[in-house]
Amino acid sequence: MDFLRPASWEEALAAKAEHPTAVPIAGGTDVMVEINFDHRRPDALLDLNRIGELREWEVGEETVRLGACVPYTRIIESLRAELPGLALAAHTVGSPQIRNRGSVGGNLGAASPAGDSHPALLAAGAEVEAVSVRGTRMIPVEEFYTGVKRNCLEPDELIRAVHIKKADGPQQFSKVGTRNAMVIAVCAFGIALHPGTRTVRTGIGSAAPTPIRATAAEEFLNSALAEAGLWDSGQIIPPAVARQFAELVSGAANPIDDVRGSAAYRRHALGVMARRTLGWAWEEYRGNERSARCA
């Protein structure tokens, strides 16, 4: 096994071009488990820890450009206002120790359907900045996941950053696990209200081969909110609408039975989480609207 330690981003790209089978390692929270348990013996590890820019972020007009290796802890501490859904999701990742090392770039690289950041990225809207010596691609996050633990990165590409839409409305994230901390998702759900475009976006984790959006649920809710004029009135969402939304979220999932939970439970739980998170997000939206009107 080789251990490649590029000191700069350019060196990293060159190394990845030269060693396309090298496995990038940042926080190590996935890769090292596989090595310790003898599930994986890559030809080389490509250490990204020495590249300082990967741990930085920039808050722009529309988006946050989040360096691939920004640890979850920093997202929780520093980006709660801009990326509330991701910050909530980050808070459910593993343990404090894992949150100090793990990053969204790592979650995307591993592309596990159970990765906690995916539903939040899908709901907020995000693009993955994939770079190789050949150039840069911006990949919408919906298109990034291609299968269980597979993504659309080319062998010579590395994730440099994720461009995540800044929140223009309330966001929520919820995850079911069979323990109250340090638990892998049985299933997870993210929701983001986008009052600017009067749309709602969602993300489902751990309930299909890849993280997915519940597009039918989104479309239903978008038109239901529009038809009833709720974005303007700020009135509560009728229970029947919330129920229908929840059912559509359940229906969007394509879960399996495994040791962490049954498919039927995952569908059920997604519905409950969809209904609750929509309620919390909408309450916050209504509160914001009211205080905006009073001001």
């Binding site: 459910t92 929520q172 919820s174 995850k175 079911v176 696990g177 109250n180 901390a181 609750r276």
Partner: peptide
């Protein structure tokens, strides 16, 4: 119940 996973308020 659910703890940090934010499943219920």
């Amino acid at each position: 119940p659910g703890g940090l996973s934010n499943t219920t308020h």
